[in-house]
Design a binder for these strands. Structure first.
Lengths: 140, 140
DNA sequence: TATATCACTTGCGAAATGCAAGTTATAATA
DNA sequence: TATTATAACTTGCATTTCGCAAGTGATATA
């Protein structure tokens, strides 16, 4: 059975919509892997976020596509693969992820200090670099 | 049975830590209710986020306290009530929530346009106001 | 004393999740 | 061509979480 996903909206604050789309254990991590680590295929997601189950990954990719956060297309160089790409809506999540990372880095002992320092040093520059990389690798 | 919550850390990016603490359907909404709407008691949370079950609310409040995002103390004016307050770590989530709201507002049809416009117009000013309100209402 | 309200807890059915084992399609190799 | 490997999934099933209704004990109010 193929599930349908629709953004059944709770009323009130727009945060409800965000939580509807992103408020689970894996969605934001998948988006981070696409945005920061350059993951684009199923196997790359599986190995980036070790621990995610294959059925959950398939489900989250489907949801993210339904929400317009990612698109998918066949890989021209390998017919077995599919390539997942962030949409404009997806790359617009960069400030959200950045703030989350900075928050955690400020209050927890955390990994990847190089990335964090890059964010802290010049947030705008970091975001611009993320967006530029996205534009370069996205055939639009 | 009373559950224990500890931040079992996944390695790598600090985003893992944030998702560990906030990656569910309700935590961010509870924090928003405290931060923006001034909710401080169990009943206020129940009525702010209509739909949250009482057991889930109790669980999330326990988790958020375990993570150091909120504190709780008895209400001096009513011994039945408990008052929940954001810690410094909790109020530091304001930029995260703000970016999430702005993201959703930019890509979805959303409620509370007044709040959104306030955020868009001057993000720093909005965040400063949130923090000031927190300082005023928090006995530290 | 009686009743209401507070912050929970308990029980239970339903849904979501995690894991292992398929399945199908394409690609690379012999 | 036959075989093997890898890709993106699906399926089954046990475990966990969730949502709802109904308690519980402590405190406040009449």
């Amino acid at each position: 059975m193929t599930k349908k996903y629709s953004a059944k909206r709770r009323s009130g604050c727009p945060l409800n919509a965000s939580v509807e789309m992103l408020g689970d254990r894996w969605s934001l991590l998948i988006i981070r892997d696409m945005m920061i680590r350059g993951a684009r295929t199923y196997q790359e997601f599986l190995h980036c976020d070790e621990g995610i189950a294959t059925n959950i990954l398939a489900d989250r990719l489907r949801k993210l596509e339904a929400y317009g956060i990612i698109t998918t297309e066949p890989d021209p160089s390998d017919g077995r693969k599919r390539i997942y790409l962030l949409t404009a809506k997806g790359i617009d999540l960069a400030p959200v992820l950045t703030e989350m990372v900075l928050w955690a880095a400020g209050h927890e002992d955390t990994g990847n200090q190089a990335l964090v320092q890059q964010m802290q040093k010049d947030k705008e520059k970091f975001l611009a670099a993320v967006r530029r990389r996205w534009e370069e690798t996205t055939i639009s």
